[in-house]
Design a protein around this nucleic acid. Sequence first.
RNA 1: GGUGAGAUACUCAAGUGGCCAACGAGGGCAGACUGUAAAUCUGCUGGCUUUUGCCUUCGGAGGUUCGAAUCCUCCUCUCACCA
Length: 400
Amino acid sequence: MPVIKAMREIERGTAEIIDRERIETLVRNYYEKGEPYRVKLGLDPTAPDLHLGHTVILQKLAAFQQHGAIVQLLIGDFTAMIGDPTGKSETRKVLDRETVRKNAQTYQDQAFKILDPEKTELMFNSTWLDALGADGLIQLTTQYNVARMLERDDFEKRYKSGQSIAISEFLYPLLQGYDSVAMECDIELGGTDQKFNLLMGRHLQRAYNVGKEQAVLMMPILEGLDGVQKMSKSLGNYVGISEPAREIYAKLMSISDELMWRYYELLSTLSLEEITEMKRQVESGELHPKRAKEMLALEITARFHDEAAAQQAKEAFDSLFKARQIPEDIPEVDLEPEIWICKALVEAGLEPSNSQARRDIKQGAVRIDQEKVEDDQLTLEPGEYILQVGKRKFARAKVG
RNA sequence: GGUGAGAUACUCAAGUGGCCAACGAGGGCAGACUGUAAAUCUGCUGGCUUUUGCCUUCGGAGGUUCGAAUCCUCCUCUCACCA
């Protein structure tokens, strides 16, 4: 039964599904009659750098593609001007068309590391929202009322605590919902924080007699490397998918054991059974947790690079941390002779200031050719040295 | 439009004339421990080639004072309440 199997894959790791029946019907229609269906994902073109948090949803889209879906990637070039009220009430900078286009291109390049380009359509919501006009917009606002709008978590909180809510923010969910009308999508994906907006699409599709109501599938928010807050670039706890293999690998190896299982569920393509089995082995002591983490890091690194690069990243990582060896390709700097050690560290880019360098030397964090530096007044004679600060900052210094 | 409150280092936040480079918390960095981590403990967290010293910082510009993050004046910006 391919449908049952497909549904299991589709449901995996989801936070919530609204109208599961409909999804099953769509999948069944595909398998029985070969009819495709449309799955929408809206993207905000403000931050073109994708990280693992975004890939949770992208991978779900990829899963859909394997089961007959045409993915509609929607670039919210129009709505970007308003800004989704979720989160902080920052004033958005208005993006010009050129920037949006460029960001969209970057998005696409990155998204295609996961998605099948053959089954993906790229869309811009300015296409229909520009044409909506004032009357269309007013027409749209009549489809909803303030009381219901205030039901939205975020609005409710702010309203009760007396924080301001701009009228334009009310428009965001409406416009996002209207996108679904224009796109005639069957399913929309999003994070749990998007629930209100996603349901709006359902509501508006009915109001505008599209002839269908989109099912909604929500993915949980991926925790960042700290395991507490959501993964985001601004919090610095993210793994970017265009980062070098070594970075991705090292960052993944730094997560806690607990978080590792979460990542397995949401990011790995291993089946749920395999993951459960692995977890059992770790608990019984048959498998070292570090080993399990290595496999995860390898899998994900390979996804954005390739097997060989992942393997190399692992080796570099092992030699750096396990054997405390020096990595092969480290930055080189030329320094003048008799240079003061602190200054040398700053010039090599290992330290931000002489003072910081001095502090680190006092703490025994600085090494030259593996030897701990004790004297912060040291000057370097001509020659070649490996400078090191902490465990991971290295530079090769040519003095003279 | 009126009234009031506020602006302090990466973030939150104490400090209301000298003991302030500025309490505390978070974050970050480093050391110990380890599995590379996480947790825990410890130290550091403005700059300066010489550090029981010097210089620059507490929204901006002036002023009072031997001495100002702290007092005064003006300016800029935020926020709250009332219209």
